[in-house]
């Protein structure tokens, strides 16, 4: 509990620091260029309050979109990554394919995705899923490749089926690194979300996502910036949720003299 409180305190301090820096930058730009360039935190806050309904709706839509994309990326990527990493035969055949596709940015395919899926909700999800999917696959595969053989032997000796080996050994052994990778990928995911919501969200209103919100108010710096802050908070939210998930699901990692190593 004190740990959680201390962590919350650090986040508060960090947030205060960011706001301080923001204020400084805003003031510096305004005095040197003699006009408002970066709206100050206070101005932005007022703009946010004035447009609270739209902003909240945009935040909710983006959060839901990101959550669905993350869930789909896990549901598809985790089994694939684990199987490819754990079964040497599949590893040999599928790894080159994965490594070939992995560095390809979905942004570069936006035109084709648009032609294939149109401008509906599906295409926006596909872009974010594609970005997160490969992160999950590569993390799961890497972790599954280095599973301690004696852990597998201990369940095989009891007569475990293939499914039981995955359930008792492969999945729990790899979960910490997969969750860490997912956490690290939140930044990339949010970027892709922004791109999906702006480039593939032309027909939407400002309440349909933070990306759209930011784009819609391009000529109102203060409102637009409130959307950017929303996007940052969205990233933070998922980062924290994934960290908590890791603490709950991988409790064994956080106990013991050597931190469970």
């Amino acid at each position: 509990m004190t740990r959680t409180l201390r962590l919350a305190f650090y986040y508060l301090v960090a947030m205060a620091a960011v706001i301080g820096l923001w204020w400084g930058a805003s003031w510096l730009l305004e005095t040197t260029r003699e006009r408002e360039i970066l709206p100050s935190p206070w101005v932005t806050f007022r703009a946010a309050v004035a447009n609270l309904g739209t902003l909240a709706s945009a935040f909710g839509s983006s959060a839901l979109r990101f959550l669905v994309a993350l869930a789909v990326a896990f549901l598809l990527g985790l089994p694939l990554g684990l199987v490819v990493g754990f079964e040497p035969k599949l590893d040999r055949y599928l790894s080159p394919l994965i490594y070939l596709l992995y560095p390809m940015p979905p942004v570069a395919l936006l035109l084709f995705l648009y032609l294939a899926f149109g401008l509906g909700e599906v295409v926006r999800l596909v872009v974010v899923v594609m970005a997160l999917f490969f992160q999950v696959v590569v993390a799961a595969q890497g972790a599954a490749k280095y599973i301690v053989p004696s852990h597998v032997t201990s369940v095989r000796s009891a007569g475990a089926t293939r499914w039981q080996i995955y359930r008792h050994v492969v999945l729990p052994a790899t979960l910490p690194s997969v969750l860490t990778a997912a956490r690290v990928s939140v930044g990339l995911g949010i970027t892709m979300l922004y791109i999906a919501e702006t480039k593939l969200g032309l027909l939407l209103g400002p309440g349909a996502g933070l990306g759209r919100f930011i784009e819609y108010y391009t000529f109102r710096g203060d409102i637009s910036l409130a959307g950017v802050v929303g996007l940052a908070l969205l990233g933070l939210l998922f980062y924290v949720v994934l960290e908590l998930l890791e603490r709950v699901l991988c409790r064994w990692k956080f106990v013991g003299a050597r931190g469970g190593a």
Partner: peptide, 14 residues
């Protein structure tokens, strides 16, 4: 038949 592995073979997550 039961096998006791070298170094016990315990699963750290259990």
């Amino acid at each position: 038949v039961a096998l006791i592995l070298q170094d016990a073979g315990l699963l750290p997550w259990k």
